[in-house]
C-alpha cells in the first residue's frame, strides 16, 4: 500500500486498528466508527493522534459533533463504483469545516483520484496496480472544471 499525500509518496505513520486488536498506549491509530462509539472514553484519554474510519454507508453527520477529536478521517470506497464517500467528504469539508487529513481508503484507483481530490480528500491509500508515482499524474490531467466544490480553504 502506498500513501499519496500532497502529490508525493510518503511513508504512512498511521495504523489501521481492527476492532478486536487491543489498543496500545503508543502510536497513531485509525479506528472504526463502532470502536469510537464503544470505546470513546478510552480513546480520548490516549495522548496520541486519533483517526476514524467510516464505511461508505456511514455519513458525515455520524461524527459531526466529534470532529475536534480526530486528526484523520478515513472514508472507505469498498469498490470504486460506490460513490457515497464523495458526498461524505464534501460535507465534512464544506459543512462541518473539518481541516484535518481526509484519507481515501479501499479501492482507490488512478482514474478516481482527481474526483476525490476535488471533493476534499488530501491523502490517498492508492490501491492501483501501477506504480503510485505514475498515478500522481492523474491529479494534473485536467485543471478546468465547472463546479465550485471542495472549497474548504486550501490554498
Amino acid at each position: 500500500m502506498s500513501l499519496i499525500k500532497n502529490n508525493i509518496i510518503i511513508r504512512d505513520s498511521w495504523n489501521h486498528l481492527d476492532d478486536d486488536t487491543p489498543l496500545s498506549a503508543e502510536g497513531k491509530v485509525i479506528v472504526s466508527l463502532k470502536r469510537w462509539q464503544s470505546e470513546r472514553k478510552l480513546l480520548m484519554e490516549r495522548q496520541e493522534p486519533l483517526g476514524i474510519r467510516l464505511k461508505s454507508a456511514e455519513g458525515a453527520e455520524m461524527i459531526s459533533d466529534d470532529l475536534a477529536h480526530f486528526d484523520l478521517i478515513a472514508l472507505e470506497f469498498p469498490i470504486f463504483k460506490d460513490g457515497r464517500s464523495y458526498s461524505t467528504a464534501r460535507m465534512l469539508r464544506e459543512r462541518y469545516h473539518y481541516k484535518g487529513e481526509l484519507r481515501a481508503v479501499g479501492e482507490v484507483l488512478r482514474d478516481q483520484l482527481q474526483f476525490m481530490l476535488r471533493c476534499g480528500f488530501d491523502a490517498f491509500e492508492y490501491a492501483g496496480k501501477t506504480i503510485p508515482e505514475e498515478a500522481i499524474s492523474a491529479f494534473v490531467e485536467m485543471d478546468k472544471f465547472y463546479q465550485t466544490v471542495g472549497d474548504w480553504g486550501r490554498t
Binding site: F80, K81, D82, G83, Y86, S87, R90, Q112, Q114, F115, M116, R118, C119, M142, F145, Y146, Q147, V149, G150
Partner: peptide, 13 residues
C-alpha cells in the same frame, strides 16, 4: 450541462 459535467461528487451514483 455545465454543472453536471465531470461533477466530482456525482460521477459514481
Amino acid at each position: 450541462r455545465q454543472w453536471s459535467t465531470l461533477h466530482p461528487e456525482f460521477s459514481f451514483l
